[in-house]
Amino acid sequence: MLCRIRFGGTCVPRIVFDQVAKSYGAVEVLPPFDLALDDGEFTVLVGPSGCGKSTTLRMLAGLETLSGGEIYFDDRPISKLDPKERDLAMVFQDYALYPHMNIAKNMSFALRLARVPKPEIEEKVQRVAGMLNIAHLLDRKPAELSGGQRQRVAMGRALVRDAGTFLFDEPLSNLDAKLRGKMRAELAEMRDTIDKNMVYVTHDQVEAMTLGDRIVVMSDGFIQQQGSPEELFKSPANKFVAGFIGSPTMNFVDGDLVEESGAIWVRGDGFHLPLDSQMAARVKTAPDKSITLGVRPSSFTTDLTQGAPIELRVVVSEYLGAQSVLVTRCGGVDVLVETQSAAPVKAGITQTFGVLTNELMIFDKTSGLRL
């Protein structure tokens, strides 16, 4: 069983954003918002470029001033404090290592500036280097390391500081896909073994899903939804969250709610699907019968004894090993279908699939809210 370690008795505060806002002149980047992060929690801020996630992180770090509101560590306001007074350690996207120093000196730089006793510095560097599997690299210079090793050094430099909160600003975006996956697993292991606040910014929803205790989904400066990965995947608040969380991405097709023989159906160009009783009860009183239907690629099956039938023309078949992703056509809309590669489907044919109707989602076409 993994044991969570609280380094050096460092205080791990509860972080609260209270009506925090950010503007640049007349341009409002972040309207006033509230957010509370529990102590020892790994929180991921995720969203497309320009959504405000990095600005939020930089305000927490003290690198951006607030235009309104306050940030609290427990009950202590910190927006007027300098970055060095906030008990934070930050890992940047570009590593920011000193090229003329070896790895041990890079990792211990902040401790040496703070005049920490040499034996204590050596103990902390060795302990963290061992945890990150870079103890054999301490005498090397950054130029002699791979990208993944440099990223470990950047994380190690933060860890040796024994700060109460770690901030990660897209730390894996410069790595290739294979190394990014490996580093993601190492970060997940580190998350489970160290009792620290960790706030992580990324545009990659896979990183968010695999790392976060809590995910905060942002778009256009607004928090769209927050919760556990499972909550966001199974119960998205709106069409944006549903489309952003999950890989391959959710399919959206326009349709109309119709009542036939006492049941509620969704009818559109190329499909006519029944809703299960639970969903039908939720949408029966919807004022607008013109809606958007959401179907995850994993909600299709080639077993026609399950689900409601739908005919789709296969345009592209992408073989991914154990699974294949099919690009199909439903009416005039592309629809992604996830299947097992053991039952290959060739491009150019029209095939009947089953749709698991208990997994369908209905969204208001105007507001995007899930019904």
Rank of each mutant, 00 (worst) to 15 (best):
Ile194Phe: 04
Val217Ser: 01
Gly243Asn: 09
Leu275Gln: 06
Phe166Met: 12
Phe222Val: 13
Gly130Asp: 11
Thr193Gln: 11
Arg370Phe: 13
Arg214Leu: 06
Ser277Asn: 10
Leu179Val: 01
Met279Ser: 12
Thr305His: 15
His136Cys: 03
Val160Trp: 06
Asn251His: 11
Met183Val: 04
Ser54Leu: 05
Phe92Val: 15
Ala158Arg: 07
Ser219Ile: 01
Leu257His: 06
Leu63Arg: 01
Gly307Lys: 12
Leu60Ser: 03
Ala188Tyr: 08
Ala154Glu: 02
Val201Asp: 02
Glu123Phe: 15
Val217Thr: 11
Ser247Tyr: 12
Gly69Ile: 11
Gly62Arg: 00
Tyr200Asp: 00
Lys22Phe: 08
Met131Ser: 09
Val258His: 02
Gly147Trp: 13
Tyr319Cys: 05
Phe300Val: 06
Gly255Val: 04
Ser299Trp: 05
Trp265Phe: 05
Gln205Tyr: 03
Glu231Met: 13
Val283Met: 11
Asp162Thr: 04
Ser54Pro: 02
Asn133Ser: 14
Asn358Gln: 15
Arg313Tyr: 10
Leu30Lys: 01
Ala343Asn: 15
Ala263Leu: 11
Leu211Ile: 01
Phe240Thr: 02
Lys105Glu: 13
Leu2Asn: 15
Asp162Ala: 13
Glu64Gly: 04
Val337Gln: 04
Gly294Ser: 07
Val116Gly: 03
Glu260Ile: 08
Gly212Pro: 00
Met279Ala: 15
Phe42Trp: 14
Ser247Thr: 07
Gly130Phe: 14
Asp254Val: 10
Thr165Trp: 03
Asp74Thr: 00
Val335Cys: 01
Ser247Pro: 06
Gly52Phe: 02
Cys330Gln: 07
Leu371Trp: 14
Phe42Ala: 02
Val333Asn: 07
Asp18Ala: 08
Ile5Pro: 04
Ala21Asn: 09
Val116Phe: 10
Trp265Ala: 00
Met183Ile: 08
Pro229Tyr: 11
Met183Ser: 00
Gly62Pro: 01
Val125His: 13
Asp213Tyr: 08
Gly181Lys: 00
Thr249Tyr: 02
Leu137Val: 13
His136Gly: 05
Ala129Lys: 11
Asp334Ser: 09
Ala110Phe: 12
Glu170Asn: 04
Arg296Gln: 12
Val333His: 09
Glu41Thr: 10
Gly262Ser: 03
Pro119Arg: 14
Pro274Trp: 15
Arg313Glu: 11
Ala154Val: 06
Pro117Ala: 12
Arg180Lys: 08
Val116Tyr: 06
Ile15Phe: 07
Arg14Cys: 01
Glu28Pro: 09
Leu66Ser: 07
Phe109Thr: 07
Asn251Glu: 02
Leu326Val: 13
Gly68Lys: 09
Lys22Glu: 03
Gly148Ser: 10
Ala322Val: 07
